[in-house]
């Protein structure tokens, strides 16, 4: 698959010199690009993902349920992915397609970094994801088949940042937290009451779990923590020290504390005193 066109020809070389992996795929093997296809109703759907900025970076959490119509098609699906060591991408919507998009975006970032010798800035990554959606995935976004959420540590600002996206690939920055997916409205309401600027990573994980629980409480397509099978929401955090993917045990201990608390107050603890 190495391009056998002569690199001695400067014209050829420059027109082909492009750091975007997605453009390369579109040119050489477009069939492997993620495509929602026609079977949208038949594909599994994933649901609530949220991101919370905290004192040491930014954290992303997602529930584990995928649905197909009114049936649960998978109980342990992942919707939060590390695109690189300082960037997280979460995707709500058609599950297989979402996984492919996350994979494409991860390769895109690494490809740029290897060719240029330096990673993209956070804003550069956010723009690139917008470009991917616009250029290659317009179809998917029109039907809201998938909606991505981007969170990352920005060494230039020294803070965690969150970007939300719309169907045109346009993106807008969220200051403190953001939610996507069918349970997003419930999760957002929950986070509004629980979020405080400057909270620690542990506390941010707790309110993320609370918000996912509230989403699962009212949205049939969002799964709550599965105590019987020990399947808990996915949590990952990025900060100045890189990527921190929470182990199921670590999430599990927070989930247990939350459930213990909800035994006496099933609707959650509500606002805590400042």
């Amino acid at each position: 698959m190495i391009d056998h066109a002569s690199p001695h020809d400067p014209g050829q070389f420059w027109t082909r010199a492009n750091e975007s992996f997605a453009d390369l795929v579109a040119r050489t093997s477009p069939g492997t690009l993620p495509h929602p296809g026609q079977g949208e109703q038949l594909a599994a759907h994933g649901t609530t993902v949220l991101a919370v900025v905290h004192a040491d970076g930014v954290l992303m959490a997602g529930d584990r349920r995928a649905t197909q119509g009114n049936q649960i098609s998978q109980r342990d699906i992942r919707k939060v992915f590390a695109a690189d060591e300082s960037t997280l991408i979460g995707i709500a919507g058609s599950a297989g397609f979402a996984v492919d998009l996350a994979k494409l975006f991860g390769v895109e970032l690494a490809h740029y970094e290897k060719i240029e010798g330096t990673p993209l800035s956070f804003s550069g990554k956010a723009n690139r994801l917008g470009g991917l959606i616009r250029d290659h995935l317009g179809l998917a976004m029109q039907g809201f088949v998938v909606v991505p959420l981007l969170a990352g540590w920005d060494p230039r600002t020294g803070s965690g940042r969150i970007m939300g996206y719309d169907a045109t690939g346009g993106h807008y920055e969220e200051e403190s937290f953001a939610c996507i997916g069918s349970g997003a409205a419930f999760a957002r309401g929950s986070l509004k009451k629980l979020y405080r600027p400057g909270l620690g990573a542990e506390r941010a994980a707790m309110i993320a779990l609370q918000a996912l629980f509230d989403a699962a409480d009212d949205d049939s397509a969002t799964g709550g923590p599965d105590i019987v099978r020990a399947i808990y929401p996915t949590i990952a955090s990025v900060g100045p020290d890189g990527l921190d993917e929470w182990t199921p045990d670590r999430v599990g201990s927070l989930v247990e504390a939350m459930i213990e608390q909800r035994r006496t107050g099933p609707d959650g603890a509500g606002e805590e005193p400042r």
């Binding site: 190495i2 490809h111 290897k114 060719i115």
Partner: peptide, 13 residues
């Protein structure tokens, strides 16, 4: 650069 493209394309496909 061609090597990186080769590897990334192959690993992706």
């Amino acid at each position: 650069v061609q090597g990186i493209r080769y590897a990334d394309l192959r690993g992706y496909a």
